[in-house]
């Protein structure tokens, strides 16, 4: 009887100063960091987005309302940014995922020097975006660039990637896809390495060919990992900004036509000094990404079937 009682009690410990304070103390270092650097700024951005004519230094503002939002969603630059960001995400995320899948598969079947190849593929991740961007800027160069050289070998006329506004987005997408690869490949490779190799042995012994094994076994088993990379990459790609700088000398495209949402935010904050607009655009982006992620998670849960 007494034993029964004790187990029951241990399942639901009473909240005392000790049972609360001790765990709280352990959690404190992490919690304080989160509150200062994540929670407070997050709440503050929402508040600022609601304050009209907010002054950062004095903290003054005229009224509270949705006027910042009304202004932002009428601003052609913001709408343009929304469109460009959308297109960027739409192209970069699926293309980079498919390419990564290919490379991850190849890497996974490499027996010798696998570690070396993995490191090589991961290197771009630890290299500065600016440095790589400058290399790409050279590669995109109209007269001397590698890409136009390659095209010329195929008999294609050179393309003015960086100075013709028509091709700006394409150049950005190509660079974006490339910069997304290492992280995606590593994630997918980790997923692939979790697949029990005996599935392949069995399937192969049953006579399955590589495409069938890939589509019927590898892909379904990798679905959770693919879903994860899609979500992470979508969130990351929707914040496209720093990629613009090296390619277009700090401008949003050669004719100021390649605004992205985050570039708009940057512009509103640092250049135009419109804090309310910047905050409002940040909140709008956040809501869009949140919605998309939610939809994606929902679909993924339906997919995931084991």
């Amino acid at each position: 009887m007494s034993v029964m009682k004790r187990t029951a009690a241990s399942e639901q410990p009473r909240l005392t100063a000790r049972t609360f304070l001790e765990p709280a103390l352990y959690l404190a270092p992490f919690l304080i960091g989160i509150i200062i650097f994540t929670l407070y700024p997050f709440v503050n951005v929402i508040l600022i987005s609601l304050k009209e004519n907010y002054k950062l230094l004095t903290g003054e503002f005229s009224t509270i309302g949705f006027k910042n939002y009304a202004q932002v969603i009428q601003d052609p630059n913001f709408l343009n940014g929304l469109k460009n960001t959308g297109l960027y995400v739409l192209f970069v995320v699926p293309i980079s995922t498919v390419i990564s899948l290919l490379f991850a598969n190849l890497l996974n079947s490499v027996k010798k020097l696998q570690g070396l190849f993995q490191t090589a593929y991961f290197l771009p991740m630890v290299t500065s975006v600016m440095a790589i961007g400058l290399v790409w800027k050279w590669m995109f160069n109209y007269d001397y660039g590698l890409i136009n050289f390659g095209l010329s070998l195929l008999g294609v006329a050179p393309i003015n990637w960086l100075n013709n506004p028509l091709y700006n987005l394409t150049a950005l997408v190509i660079y974006g896809v490339w910069s997304m690869l290492p992280f995606t490949i590593i994630l997918l490779l980790a997923g692939l390495q979790n697949v029990n190799p005996l599935y392949y042995v069995t399937a192969r012994a049953d006579g399955a060919k590589a495409p069938m094994i890939f589509f019927r076994i590898t892909l379904p088993l990798l679905a959770p990992t693919i879903g994860l990379t899609l979500i992470i990459n979508m969130i990351y790609a929707s914040q496209v900004f720093s990629e613009l700088f090296p390619l277009f000398n700090g401008r949003p495209g050669s004719a100021y036509s390649l605004y992205t949402v985050v570039y708009y935010l940057f512009d509103a904050f640092y250049v135009k000094w419109k804090l309310g607009y910047a905050a409002a655009s940040a909140v709008i982006l956040f809501l869009i990404v949140l919605t998309l992620t939610g939809i994606q998670l929902f679909i993924q849960r339906k997919w995931r079937n084991y």
């Binding site: 029990n196 005996l198 599935y199 042995v201 069995t202 076994i217 379904p220 679905a223 079937n305 084991y306």
Partner: peptide, 11 residues
């Protein structure tokens, strides 16, 4: 083939 951990396709 039958393996020790059966290797049934989980999906």
């Amino acid at each position: 083939l039958v393996f020790q951990n059966y290797a049934l396709y989980p999906h």
